[in-house]
Design a protein around this nucleic acid. Structure first.
Length: 267
DNA sequence: CGCAGCGCCTGAAGGC
DNA sequence: TGCCTTCAGGCGCTGC
């Protein structure tokens, strides 16, 4: 499941390769989730950037091509299509002879072409919170924003509104490091400060390690990340807490599996 | 406007 | 061994 660090890794590889290229042809799976891929034909890619988990291509016609990888999406650059690959959901032929493909087994991903900055058809992007590594993301703002909602803090982290780009892995990691119960509903100012700090630590480390590959994630060149070897909490339910030694617990919050330490992360 | 609930998808893993 | 069920979950949509 590509989250901010995985998408950041992909965008860093993608940007220098596709900037300046013209999209000469494109096609997609018939689903409406992907069919707007062809709307980018005959435009030039000016630049590529990331917001949260969204990949945005600035196009020459005042539009943006937007790609979300969902759960199993991967971008790949190939020389020729592989007829045996049944999971290509969208593709764009570039003027340098390469072909950019969105491979997405479960079709939770999405492609859109919109007028630049107009995200009404992508409500999560339209309401996206600040970037966790942005200097404008300060503790005071984070604390106030978190208190505006009564939902569990983990739910807020996953909502993309409180801040951008956090998914299940890094939510569990940051809450464990901050010693905050994932179902806590009101953070103290000091908890918010700690959580903000640990979110940044977790994200920075994951980017440093090229993202987390549990099963599906691959960067643009097909390589796996290495951050799965550095996870301290996510997926370790039943194993010893690295801080106190108690077995980590598991609960479901809003339908998402959540690993945490009952001993270190009190309500 | 906030938010709970649901549906989308398919391969992997578990049960019998 | 093989069939069936359950699980994984980010996000858009609907309706309260």
């Amino acid at each position: 499941m590509p989250e901010l660090p995985e998408v950041e890794t992909i965008v860093r590889q993608l940007a220098p390769v596709v900037a300046g290229q013209t999209i000469t042809q494109a096609g997609s799976h018939p689903s409406a989730k992907f069919s707007s891929a062809a709307d980018a034909i005959d435009t030039q890619i000016h630049k590529v950037f990331r917001r949260g988990k969204y990949i945005l291509f600035t196009l020459s016609n005042q539009h943006e091509l937007i790609v979300h990888l969902g759960m199993t999406g991967k971008l790949q650059l190939v020389r020729a299509p592989d007829a045996n690959d049944a999971y290509i959901r969208a593709w764009w032929q570039l003027s340098n002879g390469k072909r950019l493909e969105l491979h997405d087994v479960r079709r939770f991903g999405r492609v859109a072409v919109v007028r630049a900055g107009e995200y009404a058809t992508l409500p999560t992007l339209a309401a996206l919170g600040p970037e966790p590594l942005d200097s404008s993301f300060n503790a005071e703002m984070f604390w106030k924003a978190s208190r505006a909602s009564r939902r569990a803090i983990k739910t807020q982290l996953l909502s993309q509104r409180l801040l951008a780009g956090i998914g299940n892995i890094y939510a569990d990691e940051a809450l464990w490091r901050a010693e905050i119960h994932p179902a806590a509903r009101q953070l103290t100012k000091s908890q918010a400060e700690t959580l903000r700090q640990e979110l940044a630590v977790v994200i920075e480390n994951a980017i440093k390690h090229g993202g987390t590959t549990l099963r599906d994630y691959r960067s643009l060149d097909g390589s796996t990340g290495e951050n799965q070897h550095h996870l301290e909490c996510y997926g370790r339910h039943g194993e010893a807490c690295l801080r106190c030694g108690e077995p980590l617990a598991r609960m479901v919050i809003d339908g998402r599996g959540t690993t945490f330490c009952k001993s270190c992360q009190k309500r």
